[in-house]
Design a protein around this nucleic acid. Structure first.
Lengths: 150, 150
DNA sequence: TAATGAATGTCAAGATTAGTCAAAGATTCA
DNA sequence: TGAATCTTTGACTAATCTTGACATTCATTA
């Protein structure tokens, strides 16, 4: 079922860069529960695969899926991404960001922005485990964004 | 309905920097209750999104909406920073980032990296209040990083 | 100056979507 | 076969929009 819904959505995305659906409509069409749509999206339309998903609840709600073009993945990014632990310390984040800059993968401004966003002082969380978890997610999201052709 | 009213007002603002409306007129035109106009304004024409709204009650009353364009000088950025609420929604973060790009304050790559770092899907926190708090901190840190020569 | 009418503002209840999560069921693979 | 992983379901949660009653402000007029 999930595969069928996935390919249905992807077939539309072949022609349009962006689609907007009503969760309940799709669920009706394929005769499944609405939350299955969430499952399909969460497992198959991920940023890593080049999809950006937005949604809105309430009246006039929707789920929007945008297909981004992916650049060829520089090995420097792939290697880094594969090695991000679930929890990332600030020091390690700095080193990896510096590597990206040195390898001419990112611009100085971008590197500085990311360093600021990942700094301990700015995140200012009591729970250091949580902070490191969030830092890892930010860094992963950051790496994924570099692969998008915007 | 709210979306329709929003785009109607925005389409006018494309051509004029400022509009002045009568709440009841708009409500009649779109066949909705007057307070819906307040809702649209409160949720879509916020300072974060670059709008200034004034109004007057009583006879000859009006609602005036002015679209403010972000200027790329340090004091404007400072104003933007000062107006970041303690909790920041993803949509508002996106719009502010877009404004920074439009005003040539940041490069495209930087904007995309920041958008990724602040996205709900990527932060993936169960506590949405915490998520918005962290998003606000990230955005502030990001703005601060622009102020320094690195 | 007080009363009246004409505007806009506020707020909360109800309606309408989508999101989360965990348990149960299928499937896969060593 | 048995454990691990993936999928399906549905009850519950959360966000957003719509509506209407009531409050507030302002200009005009008696």
């Amino acid at each position: 079922m999930s595969d069928i819904i996935e390919s249905y959505l992807k077939s539309i995305l072949e022609e349009q860069r962006k689609i907007e659906i009503r969760r309940s409509e799709i669920a009706d069409r394929f005769n499944c529960v609405p939350s299955q749509i969430n499952y399909v999206i969460k497992t198959r339309f991920t940023p890593q695969r080049g999809y950006v998903v937005e949604s809105k609840r309430g009246g006039g709600g929707y789920i929007r899926i945008v297909k981004a073009k992916l650049r060829p993945d520089p090995s420097s990014i792939a290697v880094l991404r594969a090695n991000i632990p679930d929890r990332l310390r600030e020091h390690d984040a700095r080193i990896m960001t510096q590597q990206l800059f040195d390898a001419n993968v990112i611009q100085r401004e971008t590197g500085n922005a990311m360093l600021a966003a990942m700094s301990h002082n700015e995140l200012a969380l009591d729970d250091s485990k949580l902070e490191e978890t969030i830092r890892a997610r930010i860094f992963r999201a950051f790496l994924d964004s570099l692969r998008f052709e915007h």
